[in-house]
Design a protein around this nucleic acid. Structure first.
Length: 200
DNA sequence: AGCACGATTAACT
DNA sequence: GTTAATCGTGCTC
């Protein structure tokens, strides 16, 4: 793969729901020690700014939420439950605090490394959750605010499979038990089925 | 300064 | 289905 396959800033500088939908089928890549650890994004959720009471930006501009207010195409990686890291792509122009949480990938490269980190679980549970895929790819707090579109970035997203609408389902976002309506029920979670597709 | 809780996960009954 | 693990963050006092 060449750099030309990497998604550029214009991809992220768009309405967040479009970005979340179109991230399905793309490839999330982390280069560690020159080796690619990667997988195809199959689940993502949109977070739409200060008015969205499920979005961290509801707290306004704070040290934690600062990356959300930055330029599109940057990583927002945050720590939760005292032990987990979650990876997001910042969307929309600078000053608009929106992002997409990557919730699941289908592992495709660096399987030995992923196995070392996730091998205590069965294979189908390696990267089927946001904290699981961050652990599998070795993404932690040091990657927060990283520019995914920089030519020398070691975390980036590549163009991948085209996922037809017939393979995409939407549903309410996960972990929203205490989030008030209407945000609790917004169908801003996108999932892709790769059943029967040849992936590599 | 203190406190309740979280965009979760794994292990357990 | 239930719950412990574990700590940074933002809110209240």
């Amino acid at each position: 793969m060449t750099n030309s396959a990497r998604l550029q800033r214009a991809f992220f500088n768009r309405p967040t729901l479009n970005v979340a939908r179109e991230l399905l089928g793309t490839r999330l890549v982390h280069i560690e020690n020159g080796q690619r650890i990667a997988g195809i994004i199959i689940e993502a959720e949109a977070y739409l700014g200060e008015k969205d009471l499920g979005c961290h930006a509801k707290a306004g501009r704070t040290p934690r939420t600062e990356p959300l207010y930055g330029a599109p195409g940057h990583a927002y990686v945050y720590f939760t439950y005292g032990m987990h890291w979650l990876f997001n792509c910042v969307t929309q122009p600078e000053g608009v605090p929106e992002a997409v949480l990557v919730r699941a990938i289908e592992p495709t490269e660096g399987l030995a490394v992923i196995a070392k980190r996730r091998g205590r679980q069965p294979k189908h549970l390696w990267t089927d959750g946001p904290a699981k895929l961050a652990q599998a790819l070795g993404i932690k707090g040091r990657e927060n605010k990283l520019d995914l579109t920089a030519s020398d970035a070691e975390i980036f997203i590549e163009k991948g499979l085209e996922i037809p609408d017939s393979r995409v389902t939407t549903s309410p976002r996960v972990g929203f038990n205490t989030v008030p309506e209407p945000w609790k029920s917004k169908p801003w979670r996108f999932q892709a089925s790769l059943q029967g597709l040849a992936i590599s």
